Amino acid sequence: MRYIVIGAGAVGGTIGARLYQGGHDVLLIARGAHHEALKRSGLRLITPDSAETLDIPAADGPVPTRDDDVLILATKSQDTIAALAPWPSDLPVVCAQNGVANERMVLRRFERVYGMCVWLPAQMPEPGVIAAHAYPYSGMLHVGRYPQGVDELAETIVSDLGKRGLVARTSPQVMRWKYAKLLSNLGNAVEALVGHVPGMSDVAQRARAEARTVLARAGIDYATPEEESEARGHKVDPRPIEGIDRSGGSSWQSLARASGSIEADYLNGEIVLLGREHGVPTPVNETLRREANRVARERQAPGSMPLEGLLALIDGRSAAGSR
């Protein structure tokens, strides 16, 4: 079986590297300078206790496929449709992405779709280099068939992932884990907008409290913090890597790259959508969604918005009773 990792950035690159180290056939799909570096020098994977250069095959677009190919999609949610458009729809797709909308989007075209809930703190400090900060394992991955269930392929994927540097588990209700991860990701926009300043976590908690009300009204279940803590244990603990400053999360990194887009529509925006469907106001998440998109569109640097300005917008929208 060959794993084709579409979007071999921080998360996809780490997953691809660990699969390759475990003896599996892997192809990384990347773009621009990252692809050029992979082709020229291989993938440099740096962890808290090791550094290794891996000669993993790489391409910058679709390649002739095989019957045993599995697509691992690790792009941002806003790029899902475009990233998969050139690939044959008879291949299985694993959505190794934040948010909960990707699996349903992919299922419109691909029959075999798998959700993957990813806890994997990593970054790409430069093209061709991935820094995976967790120790002793680089990440915790829950995998299941979408919309529910575990089949033979899910079992095989989990077995392959667990051979080197990753903790992987099957889950017949994988979306419970992805909704729990969604709650934690609601703070991504806050971090990206204002940076690590006093009061940042309070705004993130307001976004999560609002989201829990929405999920309760919608009747959507999610893994509890106790379940998450038990699953990770001390297996996936972020650690410093000498010589590499750990930057912010995925949304912070999108702004730092000045990519022009950000994932907020599929994180905070998911809560806004559910709130509108079920009649629950979501002023905190709607403000975060709008402002994150504005800052990304204007290519502003991460942490460039004053916390006081963000709070004023949230309070103004709350007072207006916005949904």
Rank of each mutant, 00 (worst) to 15 (best):
L161H: 06
A189N: 05
L182C: 11
I157P: 00
Q173G: 14
N185R: 06
R176C: 13
G144K: 03
R169V: 15
R145I: 10
L161M: 12
A189W: 00
R145W: 04
I157E: 01
G165V: 04
H142Q: 13
M175G: 02
N185A: 12
P147W: 06
V158Q: 00
M175H: 11
V190Y: 01
L183I: 07
V190S: 04
Y179H: 10
V167A: 04
G144L: 11
A168I: 11
S171K: 06
K178T: 04
A180I: 03
V174S: 01
L161E: 02
H142K: 15
R169W: 13
V190P: 01
G187V: 03
A154F: 03
T170N: 12
L182F: 09
R164H: 13
V174I: 15
A180D: 01
V167K: 02
L166E: 00
R176W: 13
E155S: 13
G187H: 02
L182R: 01
D151A: 08
L186T: 05
S171W: 03
T170I: 09
E152H: 12
L183H: 05
E152C: 14
E155Q: 15
L183W: 05
K178E: 14
L186D: 01
R169L: 11
T170E: 12
H142A: 09
L153R: 05
G187P: 05
A189M: 06
L161A: 06
E155Y: 06
Q173W: 10
L183T: 06
V143F: 00
A168T: 12
Q148D: 14
G165C: 12
M175R: 06
K178D: 02
E152Y: 07
T170A: 09
Y179L: 11
K178R: 14
R169P: 13
R176E: 14
R169Y: 15
E191C: 09
V150I: 07
G187N: 06
Y179V: 13
